[in-house]
Write a protein that binds this DNA or RNA. Structure first.
Lengths: 357, 357
DNA sequence: TTTTTTAACAAAAACGTTTAGGTAAAGGAG
DNA sequence: CTCCTTTACCTAAACGTTTTTGTTAAAAAA
């Protein structure tokens, strides 16, 4: 019995093999195949011969050798908390497709929010000669040493382009919708502290609330804590909220995932959506439209953001423009989970007005 | 005003820089840093000096040069229909984490089921010196020229390891559960023709049905057609099924996505789950537990399958064992979407028995 | 004293390309 | 017949490593 080494992969044919076969130098072959300026000095007949041979032996230049020599790898590094359902996957998918379509490959490094990995991976990627970085949903501690595009990044660094949603518009769309339905007491789920949009989005919500005349009641605000890509993320916080108070008619969640968890929590607490409570999500992940009730949500064009990140990065790599920030507009998608407020709170509720009446 | 080229990334320090700094040859430094056998001839003092300098200048060996020389790239290629919610993302996530933990990076190529890309990408990846392939949910037309692990592959090729779910057990678990609940007339959603598990799973279902004494009625079988990662995939087929007949008490979907679409279709047709129809999904994606009603499903340990694929591939790359197939066991997760059959079909329904009574 | 051994490192080739700078042969001008 | 151009290539260096095979000076042995 042979050892497992039996079928060594056939060695790919290299320039040297072609050189031997054609009786030409590797230099000549290389220039012809690359169609460089120097190739014009090679007669058509020879060029044909070279092309034919390359075709015949299915010659593919070794990318490492080429990169080493030419100092461009046609590779970018992508830094992401994790590849999973929802946010990351949608962005990564569109980004990947764009990069591939432009002849770039990409390394994905999932740091799982561990600081040591977030430090280490950019270095490892650099070692691998990536030409730039795309950073997804990750708060950069310092600028990276190569062209960088951050999706949902909110810190400014020189040489770093941020791709961000127009959060003010997003918050306004959602709250305006709720106000138009007659909601006044609205509960909020804030994002996890480490999620890169949490703070920015909350500030936008505060501004939108102000401009729409909505009061944000502190006891109606809860914050996500656990780090999971299951809707469970939103379940316990909403359960706890409901134990404390039920004096609200609408809930604006940090994202669809937590909104879906909230749907379940509301139901488990005997409340009906949207009859008792309207729920608005954020992102419009694929399954949002298929919840029962289907989820009203602020759509974040994650696919566009991913593709745009790729576009901007390649532009930068090729020495082009270097915008500090690119803003994308959200869109409100109204579905079944929002409805007119159950009861107009005509009279102020007891607690609020104890001192002032 | 300068052109956009202003801040050229600082050139990484190389072996030559260290060589100049230390007054030692690159050969010596390399051997010491790599701790090769030859390094034992270098006195401890010198070694210290070298290590210290490497540390000081944060020397990182250029991976392309190293690969070119050593002919090992510590890179694998992953071929996947697309990065998206559900199946692909879960597998890819676990696979990626495993590979990274072992010091391997990976290129992801998303072929979107286009034949020309499925042909082209393996070649491009090979050019990039990957050491092996992981193929996810993709029917290979021919074996690839490097160690390959296929997740949910059902064709056998020499040198290709298939990681497959025990579909017979999966089918049996689901159908047995339904039978125990008293279901006799069961509808089925088959997978898309190109989905690599479709055929295998269906055959397993036929065997399980046979062994449990369930008759599969042709008019209760529909097949997924469209290629999307939205639950919509299951919606139209179930709507059509319901227009044709409502004479069934349970539905076994190809996957959770289509099951979720089915939930919506059933509701839109005025049927209640699980009171009128019980629904069983497949995969146990994160959101399955958070549907309303939550979805009974056959859990496929996609994360384990991804990690296992990585493990087997690296084993193979290092010249180790080369199993033809590795089987993984599914698990039934019972939730709210299944319940005892609405009505025992005591008397045969009219159509069935016209000729025989 | 001469030869051998050992310690400590250096030189150079190799990996597969690309590219700047040749050069031999053929053709034309004088 | 000599000199210059042009044509059609080739040589060699370079990219940053790793690794095989030296090389040199000093120490040990004869």
């Amino acid at each position: 019995m042979r050892k497992a080494k039996q079928d060594h992969p056939p060695k790919p044919v290299g320039l040297k093999d072609l050189s031997r076969y054609l009786g030409l130098s590797t230099a000549t072959i290389s220039t012809v195949l690359n169609g460089t300026r120097a190739a014009r000095e090679i007669p058509a007949a020879t060029q044909e011969r070279i092309l034919a041979a390359a075709e015949k032996f299915n010659y593919r230049p070794n990318a490492m050798a080429r990169s080493l020599r030419g100092m461009r790898s046609h590779t970018v590094g992508v830094l992401v908390p994790e590849i999973s359902e929802g946010y990351g996957a949608l962005v990564l998918g569109a980004l990947g497709d764009y990069l591939l379509s432009k002849g770039y490959f990409f390394f994905v490094a999932t740091h799982r929010r561990k600081p040591e990995l977030m430090d280490e991976y950019p270095q490892l990627l650099r070692q691998r000669s990536v030409e730039g970085f795309v950073v997804i949903d990750t708060a950069l501690e310092k600028p990276l040493p190569l062209p960088t595009v951050v999706i949902s990044g909110h810190r400014s660094y020189p040489g770093v382009t941020n791709i961000v949603l127009n959060h003010d518009r997003a918050a306004h769309l959602a709250l305006e919708h709720l106000v138009q339905l007659g909601h006044e007491r609205i509960a909020f789920i804030q994002g996890q502290p480490y999620s890169s949009d949490s703070e920015t989005r909350w500030k936008a919500i505060e501004r939108a609330a102000e401009s729409l005349g909505i009061v944000i009641h502190e006891d109606l605000v809860v914050q996500l804590e656990i780090d999971t890509f299951s809707p469970y993320v939103g379940y316990p916080v909403v359960r706890r909220l409901l134990q404390r108070t039920r004096d609200f008619t609408a809930l604006f969640a940090y994202n669809d995932l937590s909104a879906i968890g909230a749907l379940r929590a509301l139901r488990d607490s005997g409340l009906s959506v949207p009859d008792d409570v309207s729920v608005v999500g954020f992102d419009d992940i694929n399954s949002a439209a298929f919840q029962i009730p289907s989820l009203t949500t602020v759509r974040q064009p994650l696919d566009k953001m991913g593709a745009l990140a790729g576009e901007v990065l390649l532009e930068r790599i090729h020495g082009g423009a270097n915008p500090v920030e690119v803003t994308i507009d959200p869109e409100l998608v109204v579905r079944e989970s929002t409805a007119p407020a159950r009861r107009r709170v005509e009279a102020p509720s007891t607690l609020e007005t104890v001192g002032s009446s």
